[in-house]
Design a protein around this nucleic acid. Structure first.
Lengths: 233, 233
DNA sequence: GGGCGATTGAAACGGTTGTCTAAAACATTT
DNA sequence: AAATGTTTTAGACAACCGTTTCAATCGCCC
């Protein structure tokens, strides 16, 4: 018998538990999630496994959070720009990254990663507060670097913060309030809010607000170019 | 004896339970909240009181939500405008209302009202889904009316929605992600984000994005006017 | 004052939670 | 084959959850 064939689970049960715990924690939150459901979803017939591999439910949660925080966002966050890159292009790149990796994070990785992080960011628990801090700080520092270059130097740091919150707020709203949006515009229209649509809109809105001139990268002949305001008289 | 003097609780215990339940539900969520803590905070020495006045914990939650939804936002939401009112002024009024009543709702009414509604909007439960719908719809319809008047008529409804989410998203981010903001700028600076500051900034940002000309209402000599971009050459 | 509905009190219920214990099964090495 | 360390299993544990029960108490009208 060449194959070991003792394989109801080829991978370690510890990783299956982590995966299942991530899903349940993301869906129901820390309190509403139960160790029995986590074990059931992991295919582990034993609830003591959680206390065996991890110490508590609490450390399991912390471990799950630490796993979710290791996002591919970081790998893309540092980019070498050509000297000719305009500020508006960098801003569009950042907004696109935020939209793609956070707002619509459902294709390249299990969706519970961002679900869990959003939960921790909007309602931080003492368990994962530090993890959440380390998760978002580089995001904002990247945006601040872009804005400092794009905007006049006399700008106060306070105003810079407010501008960054205006930009990030536009992106995050489509995730944090996605249920509200679904109710307001319907499920069908919300489904058409893909990454490119949102990135284009938010970039255009923000660049106009900041006085940066920006042109849509691809002419995209299919979509009718609709200007929010005609050229000033 | 002119005073009844049987007054460990002058008001009905039912209302004290509703008040206490609102606080606990807002702080910890439905699952993490316990009937014992609600009774303790209400000063009721009996946990059966919840099942006596309300049927379940569930209907207590629904009742609490219904109470919170009766917001003073509605009273202010319909306003008769003078014929000379410019679109930018109406937009500023709407943003100010949103910022004051929702984002910084902590002075004119117990803060748990909006805390609870935000919880229900970001993570709707089957219990209060309908209540949440009726709560937010008039808000958006008011904004849509303002935008339709302010923007050129050729604008698609889809683009109108995206613009409204950009505006509301900026406002709501300061509440939904207030913990993130506190971590990023510090508690001291966040404390300076009062209603006027946020309203001014978001209105200026949005009006610039939409091409609406807007001037700060009061010159406010104390604050240094900082322009996000000099006049175009 | 006696009767009566409304309210409160204390205790207990069955069910579920997270955790622990000890033996069984397994894998690996001696 | 025996021994050893690791993983799984089954079961029980105390603690807590929301709910129920039933008697005690209160306010009020006849």
């Amino acid at each position: 018998m060449p194959e070991p064939a003792h394989v109801p689970s080829a991978d370690a049960t510890q990783q299956r538990l982590l995966q299942a715990a991530g899903e349940v924690f993301a869906e129901k939150g820390y309190h509403a999630a139960t160790v029995r459901e986590i074990c059931a979803r992991a295919g582990v017939h034993n609830i003591a496994a959680i206390n065996y591999y991890f110490r508590d439910k609490e450390t399991l949660y912390a471990e799950t959070l630490r796993f979710a925080a290791r996002s591919p966002l970081y790998e893309n966050l540092t980019t070498e720009w050509p000297a000719t890159a305009k500020p508006a292009e960098k801003l569009r790149w950042f907004i696109g990254l935020l939209v793609e990796k956070i707002v619509l994070a459902c294709r390249d990785r299990p969706l519970w990663h961002m679900q869990l992080m959003m939960r921790e960011l909007t309602q931080p628990s003492p368990i994962g507060e530090r993890i959440a801090q380390e998760f978002i700080r580089p995001v904002y520092e990247t945006l601040w670097a872009i804005l400092r270059e794009a905007l006049p130097p006399g700008l106060s740091e306070r105003k810079l913060h407010l501008i960054s919150f205006s930009i990030v707020g536009q992106c995050m709203y489509h995730r944090l309030a996605r249920h509200v949006i679904r109710i307001m515009v319907g499920e069908d229209e919300q489904a058409t809010y893909d990454a490119e649509t949102l990135t284009d809109h938010i970039t255009e809105f923000s660049c106009r607000a900041l006085g940066l001139d920006w042109k849509r990268p691809g002419p995209k002949p299919g979509t009718k170019r609709v200007s929010t305001r005609g050229g000033r008289k």
